[in-house]
């Protein structure tokens, strides 16, 4: 599977990352290298092998439906770069 700069820009968009031209070039080469390396997995026979998402195979961990204290509004506001009138602010969503 080959990857070109167009793919890199597409992935950058998916990742919400603004890349400089230089970065786009550099990452194209880096990703080509890394993908070239990981291509070795193609040779591994995984027929019938169950994929691992969780290493220990444990299941069913729950919490009870009990509401506890939320953060104070001041704490929430203090962390936020822009917080006005009780809410986070972003450029207008159209």
């Amino acid at each position: 599977m080959s990857l070109d700069q167009k793919d890199v820009l597409h992935v950058a968009k998916l990742s919400a990352l603004e890349l400089s031209e230089q970065e786009a070039e550099e990452f194209t080469k880096d990703l080509q290298d890394i993908l070239g390396y990981v291509e070795r997995l193609e040779s591994v026979d995984v027929h019938g092998v169950v994929p691992t998402s969780h290493v220990h195979g444990i299941v069913n961990d729950f919490r009870d439906d009990i509401a506890k204290n939320s953060l104070k509004l001041e704490e929430v506001a203090e962390m936020a770069p822009e917080f006005k009138g009780g809410g986070f602010r972003v450029p207008k969503v159209l």
Binding site: V38, L41, V44, V46, V49, V50, P51, T52, S53
Partner: peptide
Amino acid sequence: KAQQVRTLVA
């Protein structure tokens, strides 16, 4: 594929 190979490694 990687998750499957992960199983093999484990």
